[in-house]
């Protein structure tokens, strides 16, 4: 009996002492999530990260001229973070009473719609932060710092969609338009290339190999084009 009680006590302590893990969103919550262009999110994070660097550098400074700009720099950071938070709120990636896991929640939806997660870029923009720090120390105005930060924001997505890459490699011999439209789930097994359709012109003896290599190159360039396209969208925003 004592052993049983001890066992129950141990289990109870174990249950109560478990660290809180990030709450996964419910099914309905996943449905509500909006998948925004990742570039917009990355730009927003980069902006508040760099604005924070500028603000903390000014706060640590002993130069009265630099410190006089503290309020404005803090305002820039607050604005930048508020903009990011607003995006999360609009996309249903944030609930105040739940632990924050925006990339995790984004991936849940991404997985549901496309079947796989997005590959986020691991970075802390150390070099750009060092430049911002230097600017603040050299007495740059908050407007100049803001303009510099905006100029340094990414113009192409830093993260990657692994599905785009894998499908393009799988469809190397088919037409290029299919690779862009089939950005859906990874798994569809690549159908064996129909041997009949290829040899119609046959200008070269080893045309299949050459064609596949060219295909790879074309698709690579398409990927970059796509990214450029996204940049364009962001630019419009």
């Amino acid at each position: 009996m004592k052993k049983l009680l001890f066992l129950i006590l141990v289990i109870f302590i174990g249950l109560t002492c478990q660290p809180v893990q990030a709450d996964k969103p419910d099914v309905t919550e996943v449905d509500e999530i909006q998948l925004r262009d990742p570039l917009e999110l990355e730009r927003a994070v980069m902006q508040y990260m760099l604005a924070f660097e500028a603000y903390t550098t000014a706060r640590r400074s002993k130069d009265p001229k630099v410190r006089s700009r503290l309020v404005k720099l803090m305002q820039e950071y607050r604005n930048a973070y508020a903009r990011f938070l607003e995006m999360l709120r609009e996309d249903k990636l944030y609930r105040p009473n739940r632990p924050k896991d925006p990339a995790g929640w984004y991936d849940e939806k991404h997985k549901k719609t496309k079947g796989y997660k997005r590959e986020w870029k691991k970075t802390d923009a150390k070099e750009i932060r060092a430049e911002v720090k230097e600017m603040v120390k050299n007495g740059a105005s908050p407007e100049e710092i803001k303009a510099f930060i905006e100029a340094k924001l990414p113009t192409a997505p830093m993260s990657a969609d692994p599905g785009l890459y894998s499908t393009t490699t799988a469809v190397t011999s088919s037409s290029s338009s299919s690779s862009t439209t089939s950005a859906g789930p990874i798994p569809p097994p690549p159908p064996p290339p129909p041997p009949v359709t290829v040899p119609i012109p046959l200008p070269e003896p080893d045309g299949t190999d050459a064609a596949s290599k060219d295909g790879d190159k074309e698709i690579d360039s398409e990927d970059t084009d796509e990214e450029d396209g996204e940049d364009g969208e962001d630019g419009e925003d």
Binding site: P19, V20, Q21, A22, P38, L41, E42, V45, M46, M49, P99, K100, D101, P102, A103, G104, W105, Y106, W120, K121, K122, T123, D124, M158, S159
Partner: peptide, 8 residues
């Protein structure tokens, strides 16, 4: 730890 951000 509660989760990840967009820069991992």
């Amino acid at each position: 730890p509660t989760g990840k951000g967009f820069f991992e």
